[in-house]
Design a binder for these strands. Structure first.
Lengths: 372, 372
DNA sequence: CGTTTTATCTTCGATATCGAAGGAAGATGA
DNA sequence: TCATCTTCCTTCGATATCGAAGATAAAACG
């Protein structure tokens, strides 16, 4: 639809280019063609010129930005009991982000209607008047079939199995819609904060354990379930049966849910993964030991994947990521057991993007869909 | 250099397109532009028209082929004691393939000089006169840094560490040169036989265990060591120290080398991985049991990767792949333990491409380099 | 058989892109 | 301060691509 102009707009929106000259360098188009296209984009109100950039030894570039009136994206990241919702401009910058309680156990229709109402609310209260909505995207705490935007075999989403979220949203909004697993969105969002790292594994350690994979700079989806590490068998003394029907899955030992129930059993009351982090920060021995053990088990699983995929970085996000013992024991396990060749330049770090990473990721994917 | 014409030539060379109409469909260019470019390619002697293809309900297409005189590719796959060498035309079709004994332990210079002499020999005896050599490619039984074509930390190649094979070959041949890990070449070659499968894991089970990964239709290299599964820790009763310094690596139990030494220890003399296959085919219980155990261990490692990457197929190649118990126990382990979502459409099969797969893979990568 | 349908390939004017040359604006340095 | 250099951006003629219409060739069908 937008053709070559879309590619240029995308380069500006993603922050890769700020001037006509940069666009020419990055897009491969001739400088003259870039000028023509940019003139059109400015005419259409999609780009604006805004002052001038810093000189690189010659004439200062005329800085280009995506127009604030070019459009809005409505994005959400659905969790089991809370959802983060936000409005972004076309450059992916949040205008407003809110967290609201919700309950996905009410089923897909009710939840998505609630989400749409929340979007309407945000647009009314925070949307600049006259700026059109251009796309809708949402993260789902379960596997999503990449072809049909359909939820498949989710473990904690009663009533959602085989429900096509993309179709349902597409019927309401006549706009590009993206539906994606929450860990995948996190990975895409996080990738923006890791320039130069084309191969990234982004762990989401929260109530469950998920992982998003960026390879060659792009999200790897496989058939929709890519990134699963929660049902890998781990070696432990005890033996626990997982809900998937197999014994000793990683999830049964290292997920936030598992840590919480272990603490509760020992008479230490916790209600949310964040409580586990607090206990570990306060130096409660039981919590620290459990978190360390979780990190070790996660690290041992990652070992296999690091040897096999040779990523540039492993990024740990999710509610549990702020627990220092978790990441240090992941580091220890990976560096101890992986091939030197694979760990030589491997960075293992906590998220750089903060709590809105998944929403930024949704914006990034949506932008591609909107500017296709 | 060749620009848009290169893309068209590549589509014909890879067998994706056979007529101008197909080229137009696949390249995205207008039919008229395709006709013009094809005319030039024919004029340059790179393409030829050859009869007509089968009708799809209308006029028969005029079949296009890469000219046999367009050029030759010299490719090799170096093993520890043998090398396969071949000449391909620009469509990747072998003119001649030979297996010759060699010894990489003589070091890089000696081995590469030997290889060059073998290429000269093949060109003299089997190269059509007047057809130019357009590229040289070789597979290496060890990790190769993708940037510099440099061998890094190989385990069975004394004297090769940090040697830049690409630079050495580039000095001799003023042509595009590719240097790649042998399992990676196998994967690329095998991928041609699996149309529609964009995500492939290709296991090379021979003296060592290697794996090549095709994701999104392209070879995944990581930082050069991607595809390693041999140094994953497996769970067994006994405990063996691996040469990498860690206990219980997969390689120590499931590689051809491990199987051979285990059989020899039990008084059953074997000298090559193929001997193990013969023994298993003959129903020698010790051999069958060892092979089954190897398959189970490999399968358990693959379990993690299948859950994580959701490939379309796992292809088993290498000398040991003809051992039926190996593949059936890999299948059993993967299907038993992986998520249903990941195995629903997963195929696990032996190689479709035969013994020249790695050479075909080298040709495929070289073609991209030659037609860039 | 001839007519219709389908697909392949080419012709030709309209459009888009390119690239060399030059103008604009600031950095650099005597 | 002024000439010179670097970078940014535009102008304009040359070139490449597009796409609609037509020509070609064969299959499908009455």
């Amino acid at each position: 639809m937008l053709g070559a102009q879309g590619a240029l707009l995308r380069l500006v929106a993603t922050g890769h280019a700020e001037s006509r000259a940069e666009l020419a360098r990055l897009s491969g188009l001739a400088a003259s063609s870039v000028s023509l296209r940019v003139e059109e984009l400015i005419g259409n109100g999609l780009l604006v010129e805004e002052g001038s950039g810093t000189s690189r030894g010659g004439r200062r570039p005329r800085r280009l930005r995506v127009s604030p009136t070019a459009g809005l994206l409505a994005v959400a990241d659905l969790g089991a009991h809370h959802a983060r919702l936000g409005l972004l401009d076309l450059s992916g910058t949040p205008l407003i982000v809110e967290e609201r309680p919700c309950d996905i156990a009410l089923g897909p229709e009710a939840t998505l209607d609630w989400m749409a109402a929340a979007f309407d609310d945000l647009l009314r209260t925070h949307g600049p008047p006259g700026v059109p909505l251009r796309g809708v995207g949402t993260g789902i705490p379960g596997p999503v079939d990449p072809a049909g935007g359909r939820v498949v075999s989710p473990s904690r989403m009663p009533g959602w199995n085989n429900f096509s979220v993309a179709e349902h949203l597409g019927a309401r909004y006549d706009l590009p819609v993206i539906v994606e697993n929450d860990a995948n969105l996190l990975a895409v969002g996080e990738a923006r904060a890791w320039p130069g790292c084309d191969n990234l594994m982004v762990l989401k350690a929260g109530t469950g354990i998920g992982c998003g994979v960026i390879m060659d700079g792009r999200l790897h989806r496989g058939r929709g379930a890519a990134g699963d590490i929660s049902h890998v068998r781990v070696t432990t003394d005890s033996s626990v049966m997982c809900s998937c029907g197999h014994p000793d899955c990683l999830e049964a030992y290292a997920s936030g849910a598992a840590l919480m129930s272990a603490l509760n059993e020992r008479g230490i009351p916790v209600r949310r993964p964040a409580d586990v982090v607090s206990l570990a920060e306060d130096g409660v021995p039981e919590a620290t030991a459990l978190v360390r053990n979780a990190g070790r088990l996660i690290g041992e699983v990652l070992t296999v994947l690091v040897n096999f995929l040779n990523p540039d970085a492993i990024v740990v996000g999710g509610n549990l990521s702020r627990a220092e013992p978790l990441i240090s024991s992941i580091r220890a396990a990976v560096y101890e057991r992986c091939l030197p060749l694979a760990t030589r330049d491997l960075e293992i770090a906590v998220t750089r993007s903060g709590p809105d990473a998944a929403l930024l990721g949704a914006g990034s994917l949506l932008l591609d869909a909107v500017l296709a």
